[in-house]
């Protein structure tokens, strides 16, 4: 059996190399890549049976690397550190993972499962990538500096933002509000491409909180507020609302 390691930590590369050498003579380590881009090249060149793949690398995640392959004719054992957010997604899609710095029994079990399991992992991997994409969108935050320190607001929690000269009032779920010293234009820039739209000179709205739309004149949001759509923004709004 031929394997490769894709991990950007030289310590992990050495440790896994030694563990394989010491305890798994039937597995031949064919190559080591230090980032996702090198990993793609190495896998395409060597066509291994098994890839030990780091979840979080500096240039891309292991999932982003896998997404660059049309087919996955190799098995994957993900390697990750303690309490990484991706573990839940990996586990729930019946994929294998190892926690760094590798307990020998867990490594033995993972390799034994790899030897027995010849099922195609492609669909499970696609599900995992999709789960993580959804999670990562939900985790997006709006980060703002305030006099009290950094303020982190999950984007999902923002319903709409109201501009008041040099300040903006952020209307959040659960009827909370945050007044921040940013203009609406500043916030519009920060939120570009994240599901928000400046529908009026005084308002930015969050697409995921639109309950209904009235003939492109106004929208009703999840806090039951009616927000006007200015005449000159109607066409852009219509395209945005349709396409997003």
């Amino acid at each position: 059996m031929r394997c490769v390691i894709v991990d950007d930590d030289p310590f992990i590369q050495e440790l896994l190399k030694d563990k394989l050498l010491n305890y798994f003579p039937e597995i031949s380590l064919e190559g080591v890549a230090s980032n996702g881009h090198e990993g793609i090249q190495l896998i395409k060149k060597l066509n291994p049976d098994l890839v030990f793949l780091d979840v979080e690398m500096t240039d891309m995640t292991g999932f982003e690397m896998l997404a660059m392959f049309d087919e996955l004719p190799f098995k994957i054992i993900f390697i990750t550190s303690y309490k990484h957010y991706a573990i839940k997604a990996i586990r729930s899609n019946a994929l294998d993972y190892l926690l760094k710095p590798f307990d020998l029994e867990e490594l033995k079990n993972a390799i034994s499962r790899f030897k027995k399991n010849h099922l195609d992992q492609t669909q499970n991997l696609k599900n995992t990538i999709s789960t993580l994409k959804t999670k990562s969108n939900k985790d997006d935050l709006l980060t703002l500096k305030t006099q009290q320190g950094d303020l982190f607001i999950p984007l999902d929690d923002i319903i709409h933002i109201e501009g008041e000269r040099n300040y903006s009032l952020i209307h959040l779920v659960n009827q909370k509000k945050e007044l921040v010293s940013k203009t609406l234009s500043n916030l519009e820039d920060l939120l570009k491409g994240k599901g928000f739209f400046r529908c009026h000179k005084s308002f930015i709205i969050n697409k995921s909180h639109i309950l209904e739309e009235s003939n492109h004149n106004y929208v009703v949001l999840s806090n039951h507020k009616e927000i006007p759509i200015s005449r000159r923004r109607k066409d852009t709004f219509s395209n945005w609302n349709r396409n997003l």
Partner: peptide, 25 residues
Amino acid sequence: IHKMSPQLQFFGIQSISHHIHKLEL
């Protein structure tokens, strides 16, 4: 911290493990 953590565990450095977990979370 996330990147260092496995190497610190491997070297049995226990005194800061609480800090590392807290920072990661």
